[in-house]
Design a protein around this nucleic acid. Structure first.
Lengths: 346, 346
DNA sequence: CTTAGCACTCATTAATAGAGAGTGCTATTT
DNA sequence: AAATAGCACTCTCTATTAATGAGTGCTAAG
């Protein structure tokens, strides 16, 4: 009868060792290497047997007969699960200056751009940030500024004090006074709720005849429409393209090109990040688990960030499947918490 | 005595042929090729003699004894000069939609980003645009909007109707009314002049006691200071990184990496583009003529763009030295004229 | 001045051999 | 039964060599 095969403690330790070593070297790992570098007190032959078992279980693989082993995607998954059991608590993930800077931005775009840069520079992989949908933003204050006849700048100040502005064109011309009136109305009646809710509430109030400024309100509603429509597709920030030049798995121009093209065509990335919002928390997509064929050699570590109690967007890191998960995961987690803090501060 | 060597008409035609052929194929060009593909009615041997002369004159070079010839930078220079003699007039450089879109932007940033994309997509090289210095911008209208205590958004509407906004922090808090007063003063007194001149004029008027609102003016001046200081380094837009993946001369990861690093570190590019402003018109930097070592295999075709009669910035295309100058030069010229038109329209 | 002919050069490609890393299996030890 | 030592085997990687071919440079003839 065949030997019983299960993932006992020792096998798992060997697996961890193989994955960890491979992450460092990017090379297939041989039995002799593990025997020498780790203190299992086992001969290469024994380790070889265990590795053969791990291969049969689907955690390791063989590029060819006489090469060492490397992890399968399943192998990485196990590795990561075991990591989570012992998170690197209390370590200093960012310098004091880097942390302080999060609170110093006036504009959402700049905050997110900085966040993205932090993600890429601390991990040496590619940072990626999905900006919040503006319609979900809770605002403290809205202003309208007439730019030209029919053209108005809308300035949102979110409850966290961050600014985002938008220029929209309207069918009708409004004087600056009218615009100020509208802004005042919105600011007084609808503090601390999102644009979507503003719209819903306005419609409700009209239905119930609770307000009389019909004409003005009608205009305000129209304006809302324009604002909602004028939203471009959600923005994605990407930083650190250069980092993948250093990764040996991308030493191939065609692979490199494919990945760069994926970044250029942001829709696919957007879908993935968007779906991470639904699942919430930290998400780790290993290799082909992400749906982009060109990125089957990449992993994606993402976390949602929040403002108050509401999820606002996603941020994360893209790197080779062989990425340094033990460093990246806490970094993404921590960065998300900093962004959330900044967005939640009133 | 040595044979007399000069660039007669026939030699120049051969040179043109060699350069043109090399631009198409990226390969060294042999005498037989020229003899067959062009109607000089000369045998390869004769062409070989002429090519040897061209080499001695410094227009062609030899990678090794038994390879064909390719142009030196000097060779490209001659080639381009002869091109300019007969520009491709009347050809359709952009579609109607592409052209129309230039007039449809409300924000300077978006206009320039689009311009950059046009430059890269039409030439299949890298588009590059240096944004105008805001202090030189002539404005039609300025607004101040209070965002928070001590924080103000400054909105410039340029004479061409394009908007640029900036958020600045001030030492003192100003009420929205004060801000409006200041804006009004600026808008009334100083229409159609640049920020730099506004500042100069304000100082002059104070000196001559022509105005009495001393306190308010003092604040306005302070505000000006902040605006000028808050300017980040001039912005550069770059688009079309992907295009260089298709160029055979960058089939080398290290070269590629070096170039990408140059783009990341924008200062050097900025210096080059800035110096193009001084020289004005169309500039062509071939190969090592640009001062960036990593870009010694690249050429740069730039043109300034204007608003009214004043030069505002530079735009252009970066590609391999072996770029298709006959297509790129008119394209850069034409795009610059479109941007200039847009910025000059009142 | 132009051209044909021919030897020569040099990069590129394919084929071959040798080295080295690592496994898989078997027999032996604990 | 688990661990180990020994050894043949596999497969990649590197260096060497040889063959190919494009293109020149030179000389002599038209």
């Amino acid at each position: 009868m065949a030997r019983k095969i299960k993932l006992d403690k020792r096998s798992r330790q060997i697996l961890q060792a193989v994955v960890a070593y491979h992450i460092n070297t990017a090379e297939p790992v041989g039995s002799r290497t593990i025997s020498r570098k780790y203190n299992f007190n086992l001969s290469p032959a024994t380790i070889r047997n265990i590795m053969a078992d791990l291969e049969e279980m689907g955690y390791l693989q063989h590029p060819h007969t006489s090469a060492g082993r490397l992890p399968t995607e399943l192998g990485y998954r196990i590795y990561i699960e075991c990591l989570n059991a012992a998170p690197a608590e209390g370590c200093q993930l960012l310098s004091k200056e880097e942390r302080k800077k999060f609170a110093e931005f006036d504009e959402i775009d700049k905050l997110l751009r900085y966040t993205c840069k932090i993600l890429s520079s601390t991990t040496n992989y590619i940072g990626i940030v999905l900006a919040p949908k503006m319609t979900r933003m809770i605002f403290k204050h809205i202003s309208f500024v007439q730019i030209r006849s029919n053209t108005v700048m809308v300035i949102f100040v979110s409850d966290s004090g961050l600014v985002q502005q938008n220029i929209i064109r309207l069918q009708k011309e409004y004087s600056q006074e009218k615009l100020d009136k509208m802004a005042n109305l919105l600011n007084k009646k609808f503090k601390n709720i999102s644009l979507l809710e503003v719209r819903r509430n306005l419609l409700e109030m009209i239905r119930q005849d609770q307000i009389t400024y019909d004409e003005l309100l009608f205009r305000a509603l129209k304006l809302e429409d324009e604002i909602l429509e004028s939203q471009e597709d959600a923005k994605i920030f990407i930083d650190g393209h250069l980092n993948i030049f250093s990764e040996p798995e991308f030493n191939d121009l065609n692979k490199m090109k494919a990945i760069f093209e994926t970044f250029e065509e942001k829709n696919q990335l957007l879908n993935i990040l968007d779906s991470c919002i639904k699942d919430g928390g930290i998400q780790i997509l290993i290799g082909s688990e992400n749906q982009i064929a060109e990125m089957r050699d990449c992993s994606l570590v993402t976390s949602v960030y929040v403002a108050g109690n509401f999820i606002r967007g996603t941020l994360g890191v893209i790197g080779p499947t062989r990425m340094n998960y033990s460093a990246v995961i806490p970094q993404v987690e921590y960065t998300a918490s900093l962004v959330s803090q900044t967005l939640s501060n009133v």
